[in-house]
Design a protein around this nucleic acid. Sequence first.
DNA 1: CTGAACTGAGAAAAGGTTTTCTCAAGTTGC
DNA 2: GCAACTTGAGAAAACCTTTTCTCAGTTCAG
Lengths: 349, 349
Amino acid sequence: MSSGSDSGTGGARRRPVTLRDVALAAGVSVATASKALNDQGRMTAETRTRIQDTARQLGFRPNGLAQSLLRRRSFTVGLLTNDTYGRFSLPVMAGISEALVDNGVSVFLCNVEDDPRLGQLHVDAMLDKRVDGIIATGKRVDRHLPVDLAGLGLPVIYAFTQPDPGSIAFVSDDEGGARLAVEHLARLGRRRIAHVTGPETFAVVHQRARAHADVLAEQGLDPMPALMGPWSEAWGHEAIARLFDGTGEAPDAVFCGNDQIARGVIDALRERSVRVPDDVAVVGFDNWEIVARASRPPLTTVDMNLVALGREAGLTLLSLVDGTRVEPGIRKLPCRLMVRESCGQPPGG
Amino acid sequence: MSSGSDSGTGGARRRPVTLRDVALAAGVSVATASKALNDQGRMTAETRTRIQDTARQLGFRPNGLAQSLLRRRSFTVGLLTNDTYGRFSLPVMAGISEALVDNGVSVFLCNVEDDPRLGQLHVDAMLDKRVDGIIATGKRVDRHLPVDLAGLGLPVIYAFTQPDPGSIAFVSDDEGGARLAVEHLARLGRRRIAHVTGPETFAVVHQRARAHADVLAEQGLDPMPALMGPWSEAWGHEAIARLFDGTGEAPDAVFCGNDQIARGVIDALRERSVRVPDDVAVVGFDNWEIVARASRPPLTTVDMNLVALGREAGLTLLSLVDGTRVEPGIRKLPCRLMVRESCGQPPGG
DNA sequence: CTGAACTGAGAAAAGGTTTTCTCAAGTTGC
DNA sequence: GCAACTTGAGAAAACCTTTTCTCAGTTCAG
């Protein structure tokens, strides 16, 4: 405002005002100026406010680089991910970023794209810039990032990606989430709950399938198959064809491995005039709102609480940076069932 | 490797090795050590390689904070966005990040969520950390971020969001993109090309609608309506109902304002047994792959080249930081038509 | 053999801040 | 009136690197 109309499109930048400038203007030494601005040391109240006023007037901001150099702490962390576009790491990153920024810590975005060269490039850059710690996140819980973060001499936290052994990680409780879904269906009186899910190469597929089978057994329900295929709408379609055109009795509920599959399932059911939720209830996984909300009817689905997971990871990194000892290991954070309309009401409801 | 098996889960961090350590170990002064490692100054080849070997052996990395302090350049920029989750700013951010990282510049991720308080927090943090410049990006071309970036004394670039007056901005050429789509349809022999698009509160809606009308006129085709509504699948459904249940002649092509609408349009057409592309061709906008690929048939759609846009913005910021003078103004970057199967083949093809 | 040019390397300043140490002046207690 | 504190403030070191300046010793031309 007060500095005129520099359009800022290039050319000479004005030199930032330093503590020396403030001290000079206030007629004191830099030491005194520093103490005045940090509410430290001893001096007359008059001197202190005079210096503070001068600083404000000059628009003084302490140079964070100099502070970091001295404090051996940059208030900066690196966020390593191989999934910038992805809908999993995004909420995680948002949660991390939120937790850190609230604590005055800035976040370097480092997209490594499954490329070891890029990974090393980013890690080197972070090391050079003296980040206080690193958070690694990815698109799959069971895949490593293309870099080795152990032995860097820095605190490292893993969120939603496979950790180095002996480190600290936060992941979602997929068994728990799957239980939530299947128990919900059982509670609503569904007896034949099928499972349509992703490729068997994914660890979570097996975790969720096991929970599905376990809950059926616990509830005294007949075992039902877990159909594995791609994570796509098309596979949802095809799975419905298999389930309804086969010889066995058709299901009255489908627990899907993700929301895209669920969307395909719902569309396929509608195309064969099977009513959702009246004839068949459907539950998804991920709570990918744009998909879950657009399906007809809106999809009841498991939310992995990824933002909370990220926040937790961020806060844990901060306490690590502060020197707190944190027990290594993998922490599973609970999921949450997002109830919409694809399961209907319980018989008595 | 050589430093043993510190699990890195907390406790004392080892002090990074400094130039002083290297100099001491090599039996020279820090000045000489610095010059040796930067291939500067004069000394025997023997001395130089000895120092370099020592540095390597000790795992020395120059402290970027100290270098930045001296060079008055932090090799760091801030990326301000109000759309961390979003599918528009993400590719832009990826492009920016890519361009910058390749030039040794790290990126602070600053999500401001349309919250002025958060915006100020982030801007202050960036200023404190002495970023070399700022890139602002957002989810809408016609909406300002909740912070004022003018008069910061820093280079600023806007990407896919409304710039301050007199500044430098990169946006997609929406008219051009829309022309691409409608001309494609016309070239394929479609004569009645309707337009179903987003709310009239969006500037891009009007730009694309104008291009639609213009191309129809240029091609000597009858004017067709531009139906405006929400950016949703549901609106795509409803628009088809209006177009086909109304009194007028039904369209033989629909140019949609985004891929979700297009998806709704395609689903609605299938439900009324109108064949796509045989009876009606459909074009979307955004090339949101997850939607465009999942629709049946896969959607031909306009790609705004957002990654390239981001890359361009990043490179421009760098030249600004280097002191190059860049003409202020808004640069429109061309779109690209992503041809899939929702428009079929030209009559002669 | 002497002044000039060159060589290899170190000393010191700079960058901006924080913190500890020092010190002169003023105040209290006896 | 003097020792012992207290007060307000500055000097200087520290953080780590880069760069300019300085300097002793060597080589060369004349």
